[in-house]
């Protein structure tokens, strides 16, 4: 027995040492620069106390299309601009912006540009460490469905959703906040440019005014991640746009009563004037140009 122990014990120590070393080399998936939490333990994967949801750009464009809005040419962020995005902040923001452009292409049947924008998103996804969201299989599906805008929209939805989930589960909440900021800013800009001049009592203009609410949620989300310097800078860039939406007058509104239905709604209705709209339009353009490093002018 003593002999067995004397022989087994040293071997056991060696095995145990290797087990501890290999267990420690788990690595971590969080790569958010100086502000990242590098510990990979249960609690960092457990959800935080508050989530701020923002609708996808496709939802906004689909609604405007139903209101009769038509696409306009030369609005999208040029694909060549990708060469300007050399740091993680501009890459993340413009992954969001290009996804919005892609939703615009698929919603308004601009097939010629779809592959170019997907290609740009793939390049940026690779550089953000989420290359799995756009793989060869995804590109094949896109090529196969170029004529089917419903399928294209579905694929774009999946890519954006997978990218968001990937970034979140990898502890890259700040990067995700930048992606969403880029997406919503580009969406608001594209919407206003597509709708064109102010028209009183127009549903599409009212719908643009209602983008105040997703913008509020975005702002809260940016606030939550503002410890990250890149997010703090982006929040400051978007702030004038939020303030412009906040200055829209709110009129008291009565609740509808529909028998057998729960009716929920704001106690006030946004009353957007031509002056409000033109101010928001100018600031949306300026914010969009700053985030995408563009020099475009209003139409």
């Amino acid at each position: 027995m003593n002999l067995i122990l004397k022989r087994v014990f040293p071997v056991f120590i060696v095995i145990a040492f290797h087990a501890v070393v290999l267990t420690s080399c788990g690595g971590n998936k969080s790569e958010e620069g100086k502000n990242s939490d590098t510990s990979v333990v249960n609690d960092t994967n457990i959800s935080p106390e508050a989530f701020f949801q923002v609708p996808l750009p496709g939802d906004l464009f689909l609604q405007l299309k139903e209101y009769g809005v038509k696409a306009k040419s030369n609005l999208l962020n040029p694909v060549e601009n990708i060469n300007k995005y050399t740091d993680q902040k501009t890459k993340a923001i413009n992954f969001g912006a290009y996804s919005s452009d892609l939703f615009y292409c698929s919603t308004f049947d601009q097939k010629a540009d779809v592959l170019k924008y997907f290609d740009n998103m793939k390049k940026l996804a690779d550089e953000l460490g989420i290359s799995s969201v756009i793989n060869d299989e995804t590109l094949k599906r896109i090529e196969k469905n170029l004529s089917n805008k419903d399928s294209l929209n579905k694929i774009t939805n999946e890519v954006f959703f997978d990218a968001s989930a990937n970034l979140e589960s990898n502890g890259q909440g700040a990067t995700l906040a930048l992606v969403v900021a880029g997406g919503l800013s580009e969406s608001i800009y594209l919407s206003i440019q597509s709708v064109g001049a102010f028209k009183a009592n127009d549903k599409s203009i009212q719908y643009i005014a209602d983008q105040k609410y997703p913008l509020e949620n975005l702002f809260q989300y940016l606030e939550k991640n503002a410890a990250d310097e890149r997010v703090a800078q982006t929040k400051n860039t978007i702030k004038p746009l939020k303030e412009a939406f906040d200055s829209i007058k709110e009129d008291a509104s009565e609740r509808q009563v529909i028998e057998g239905k729960n009716v929920i709604g704001g106690s006030t209705k946004l009353s957007i004037t031509e002056e409000d709209y033109n101010k928001i339009s100018a600031i949306a353009l300026s914010v969009r140009n700053e985030l995408t490093l563009n020099n475009s002018t209003s139409k």
Binding site: S47, A50, F51, Q53, P55, G58, F161, I264, G265
Partner: peptide
């Protein structure tokens, strides 16, 4: 399906808030 849906990981007894936009 509305794109503001989501899932996440939780512990028992946890309280969490979701904020989403509903449109007229």
């Amino acid at each position: 399906y509305n794109s503001q849906s989501r899932s996440a990981l939780f512990r028992p007894g946890q309280v969490s808030e979701f904020s989403f936009t509903s449109f007229k």
